[in-house]
Design a protein around this nucleic acid. Structure first.
Lengths: 137, 137
DNA sequence: AATGTAATTCGTAATGATTATGATTTGAGG
DNA sequence: CCTCAAATCATAATCATTACGAATTACATT
């Protein structure tokens, strides 16, 4: 996922290209595949656009997540976001609890489940490993 | 895990038996292994003890979680709690997003990981399946 | 049963993340 | 350059969670 690709995707849906939205995308691009919370985006973007409020941040984050430009997870009570990685198929992540950086995990536990879930409707699942990355150790 | 066992565990650590704490444990016992958030506990306990505040709820929830009487997880931005199930060893859950009830999953993905995480320190992990239970379908 | 003391609760307020709103501005097609 | 929906801005409201001083309570000990 890169910025131009994301902007075009939004354009097709009738969403506009704005400086703030573009900057948000840049911030994620600079982030090197790490999960970051809304407040980090706000702090960063306010260096260029002092007037930006949380409204703008959250509206864009949720829009981008809806469009699968971003993916999100909840870490210690805060929603965190990152670029959606579509380089390989569906997968999960190791997440560094110090810096938010991730490492792709090659397998999905759903593929290995032999247990019957008959009578249950499965909608979603979550698998994450938490710890410290080499850089933070 | 039953109430008396939990109370005794606390007693050994020097924690007191209070009506409010006992009622909280009862609520979890009535809950039939489902995850519930703080506000449900509050609403329920206030039928008997109108004066109870969130302070009491959260203090007790965290105390009970620290003592492994309860286990917790984060569902849509809210911490949810349930009795810690120690009938079988370490395991994960299917969680009904409608009622909070759970079904134990028999395997842990960490046992199946062949991928190397050399250089990474693994502290924790989370695996949950979300959907609807037979009763809610 | 009365006392001492730490644990606990109560009442209330503060915090922090997230969501909402009305007025204003802006991007992009015609 | 006009129009208009999309987006932002400024600000307030909401909701979960945490904090705190004062009052109460459990319980071991006298």
């Amino acid at each position: 996922m890169n910025i131009e690709k994301a902007i075009n995707k939004l354009k097709e849906k009738g969403y506009k290209r704005t400086k703030q939205r573009e900057r948000i995308l840049e911030i994620f691009a600079e982030q090197d595949q790490g999960y970051i919370p809304a407040k980090v985006i706000l702090k960063e973007i306010q260096k260029d656009f002092p007037g930006v409020s949380y409204d703008t941040i959250y509206r864009n984050l949720y829009l981008l997540a809806d469009e699968h430009v971003l993916e999100s997870t909840e870490l210690e009570g805060e929603k965190h976001f990152r670029f959606h990685c579509d380089t390989h198929g569906h997968h999960h992540h190791f997440i560094c609890t110090a810096c938010g950086k991730t490492k792709a995990l090659e397998f999905c536990p759903m593929d290995k489940i032999s247990q019957s879930l008959d009578g249950y409707a499965v909608d979603d699942h979550k698998f994450e490993i938490y710890g410290k990355c080499p850089g933070c150790l």
